[in-house]
Simulated assay, not measured.
Amino acid sequence: MALLTPEDLANMTNALVENDRLITELTDYSLDGLCRKIYGTVPRNEKIAIIPVTAGNGIIGSFSESLLFTVQHFGMDGFITENTDVAGYYEAVTNGADIILMADDLAYIAHNLRNGKIAHNQICTGRIYAEILCHAKDYADDKDVLVIGLGKVGTPALETFLNEKQNVYVFDVDSKRVDEILTDYPVFKYDPAKEPKSFFKIFEATPCADTICESALKENSIVSTPGIPLGISDELIEKYKVRVVSEPLGIGTLSMLYDVFD
């Protein structure tokens, strides 16, 4: 997955609110309600510290502010440390933080200092975007799902679908990765050229545009995608009345927090 940019986060707050509304429409659960259901945890007035990190490519503009919006939007107590890096960590702990949110170029984590739980964004993002499709009420009896992108986000999503007894079809531009997945998991290879098949439920996690071909779509398909840029064209969205769950940061962040709550 590509690193976020300030441009990716420019409309994040509106996107989070709109996607929360769409998730409720699709599943009958709000985003935080769905997280409660799948993780079996609840917030208990934890204080959440967001630590800006300067390592690697440095601080992404609006990243910390977007995290703070997410935390506060869902009724939690959070703050951004004035200091960065190790000094920021010290500030967070001495100011009574229960949970730390911080990211560098390689990992974005949530760490609960009280119970020791730690969550990785790629795993939690894959899981929550998959669970949205698993809980789509209109297609509860349709078990077929297409997973496009079999990397560090797509693989946890694939595992979630299998745990939820879905029939998983997989595609990746890396044919060796597809072969590995077919060896390790009870899934089906998706080959639109040889065996075209359409789906109501599509998960996409790639850093590429237009990965979802027209033959994969049905009218009113749901595309659940943390991928940036969006993997489906506006023309196909309009033509097939596709419902798209896609937001750059908040959905995965909330999933991380519920993963480390008690």
Rank of each mutant, 00 (worst) to 15 (best):
M1I: 09
L3Y: 12
L4W: 09
E7A: 07
D8I: 12
N11Y: 13
T13N: 11
R21A: 14
L22A: 10
I23P: 03
D28Q: 04
Y29W: 01
S30N: 06
D32L: 04
I38P: 09
Y39I: 01
V42I: 09
P43V: 07
N45M: 14
N45H: 13
E46L: 09
I48R: 05
I48T: 03
I48K: 10
I50S: 02
I50D: 02
V53R: 08
G56K: 11
G58M: 02
I60D: 14
S64R: 03
E65G: 08
S66I: 10
S66P: 12
S66K: 07
T70F: 12
F74R: 03
T81F: 06
N83A: 13
N83E: 13
T84W: 05
V86R: 08
E91G: 14
E91P: 12
A92H: 12
V93K: 15
T94C: 12
G96C: 10
A97N: 09
I99G: 08
L101R: 14
D104C: 09
D105L: 10
L106A: 13
I109E: 02
I109K: 04
R114T: 04
G116C: 02
G116L: 02
K117F: 02
H120M: 08
Q122G: 11
Q122T: 14
C124N: 13
G126V: 00
R127D: 07
R127G: 02
E131H: 08
I132S: 01
A136R: 02
K137A: 05
D138Q: 15
Y139V: 01
A140I: 04
A140W: 00
D141C: 06
K143D: 08
V145P: 00
G151P: 08
G154N: 10
G154M: 08
A157V: 04
A157G: 05
E159H: 08
E159D: 13
E159K: 12
E159S: 14
F161G: 06
L162D: 11
L162I: 06
E164Q: 15
N167T: 13
D172Y: 03
D172M: 03
S175Q: 13
S175E: 14
K176W: 07
Y185L: 02
P186N: 05
Y190P: 12
D191V: 11
P192A: 04
A193N: 14
K194H: 06
E195M: 09
E195T: 15
P196N: 03
P196L: 08
F199S: 01
F199K: 01
F200N: 13
I202R: 00
A205I: 11
T206S: 04
C208I: 04
A209Q: 10
A209W: 05
D210S: 14
T211F: 09
A216M: 09
S221G: 05
I222H: 00
T225Q: 00
G227D: 05
I228Q: 03
I228S: 07
I232E: 07
S233F: 02
D234W: 07
L236S: 04
L236D: 01
I237H: 09
I237K: 15
K239A: 07
V242D: 01
R243V: 01
P248H: 00
I251A: 01
G252S: 03
L254F: 00
L257D: 07
D259V: 12
V260Y: 08
V260H: 10
